[in-house]
Design a protein around this nucleic acid. Sequence first.
DNA 1: ATTTTCAGAGCAAACGGTTGCGCAAGAAAC
DNA 2: GTTTCTTGCGCAACCGTTTGCTCTGAAAAT
Lengths: 337, 337
Amino acid sequence: MASLKDISRQCGVSVATVSKALNNHTDISEETRERVRKAAKELGYSPNFSARALKTNKTHGIGVLFVDEARSGLTHDYFAGVLDSFKSTVEDKGYDITFINCSKKQPNRMTFLEHVRYHGFDGVVIACIDFNAPEVAELVQSEIPVVTIDHLFNNKIAIMSDNITGMTELTQYCISKGHKKIAYVHGEPSTVTTARLTGFYRATDKKGITIPDEYVVETKYRDTKGTYEETLNLLKLKDRPTCILYPDDFSALGGMNAIREMGLKIPEDISVAGYDGINAVSNLEPQLTTIVQATDQIGERAAKKLISLIEKPKTTIIEQVVIPGHLREGKTIADIN
Amino acid sequence: MASLKDISRQCGVSVATVSKALNNHTDISEETRERVRKAAKELGYSPNFSARALKTNKTHGIGVLFVDEARSGLTHDYFAGVLDSFKSTVEDKGYDITFINCSKKQPNRMTFLEHVRYHGFDGVVIACIDFNAPEVAELVQSEIPVVTIDHLFNNKIAIMSDNITGMTELTQYCISKGHKKIAYVHGEPSTVTTARLTGFYRATDKKGITIPDEYVVETKYRDTKGTYEETLNLLKLKDRPTCILYPDDFSALGGMNAIREMGLKIPEDISVAGYDGINAVSNLEPQLTTIVQATDQIGERAAKKLISLIEKPKTTIIEQVVIPGHLREGKTIADIN
DNA sequence: ATTTTCAGAGCAAACGGTTGCGCAAGAAAC
DNA sequence: GTTTCTTGCGCAACCGTTTGCTCTGAAAAT
């Protein structure tokens, strides 16, 4: 609780001098500086963030908007990975991260933007959220430096996992193994889903393969029940696919259970693939073929871009950064050539 | 950027009046209050957290210490679950959470305690960390309200997953299925490991079962390679166990792979069980028998206890709260009775 | 008519730190 | 010996809020 004033009293110098000494300003003699440092240590001085922020109008704080509705934020492996990497990177540069309160239960809750203004965050990262919510739009369109992950807003920096290329690559891989009847159980409409769908069709079109509409069905993300049901439906079709792609590794498990329940073998009877590269799943046998998203890079790039935008707004390029994933060739796609 | 001063100018009242009006003090007439509210809205007033915190010496901020060394914090399913639940609970009560910077790369990094003091957090939650680090001790022994998760400090509130009972229950379950030769691949020494080991022996002792020392081996947490190796070793023993327990679901996968690689079937030839109740793993076939830890409850209790300690320090009981998990009976333990 | 009560509002200090500017004194230049 | 630099430090304002105390005028009580 010791303050600059206490130190100044102890050392017989002014508060201003103490402040400058502690902040290594050049107009303080080495001798005084040492005296001040010593007193600070003795008194157990701790700088006061609020006072400093109030005066300097800088918080070195970054707001993180990770919706946790239905527990889909932190416990979502992909986003947890991104956040973890983001966190390390900004912390290395002296920034702290605070979650933007998204509780709906508060009596006088602030909007996201109000909360950010209130705390004076220097910048904000947004991920894993309903990007169409008006509150999100309000925040994005404000003057606050913002970086979004996996969603592109007009004239804002976005870090995007390369879902188009990833899905193209995955689909091409399946095709190269001889599959033509490829089904795709995809997730709810979103930037991500759209991109992957594009990638999917890009690959099939290129090879002149026509996918019947009934092969492309929609379910929720990370919902093993949903993929389980949809997979059963797919397997009941007269003309059954030889290969089924899933929106993520997690929900692929649901599909795989359905397949096995029908007495079919993976990959002998049906091939499957996921998307994400979730750790736990990669340790299964047979190892799931999937696209591993580079969560480390995504988090790190987001962090660096955001800090650049905060510290050098003029020279920072507003751009969409696309981070490629890579194919992890497991054992769930049969070669039927 | 509008401040109280701007509103006061606009309304022709003093700054003090504006402050009181906005904060619903009773000594302001309803008419004035309305006028002030209206002006605040018009000017786009946003309160200033730093100024308020400086004056009131309250931040409504909670520091979270989740070490992310080796990426084991956020991406650890168990802790991610706890944190997620903790976050929702404190946010509902108007608190914000900020990670305590644990970057080692900063030139003038603060200790954990310094960082907490600097930010003036009202309280701190500690989890998933090397509890023996001097820096952690320094923080815990300070005057800051603190709650630890899965570790007990003298005279501090701790929320503990009931690892003893959980492991006892799991072991008893195995025994009830006829297993006597039970191996236990446990994690690195820690509060958690010790508790589970206690639970393990408590169950075997009670039934008068003697476990050879070679059945109890140590490996790292969440390390499929380690459990893979240890499992191979166990399987090579002259007197092979019929059942192997793992430190967590994740690393159980490594063990299971080893078993299958040896041409053995689960659970026909060898039974296995995990610990944690990780989502992804619970969707596998055969479903892994495990103890599901109540992450939701752990996070929520930790949050409520901490807030109580912050707001009502006198009446808050310093205690160790033990949260039971529950057995999820999967299909990986054979009945060999 | 005088005193008491009270609601409504303002004064001013305080929270802890930062920083542009000014000033003094000694060193260097003339 | 005067002028010019340079070094080291203090002055004082300011950031935006909060809050105990004071003040005023009008209503209520006497």
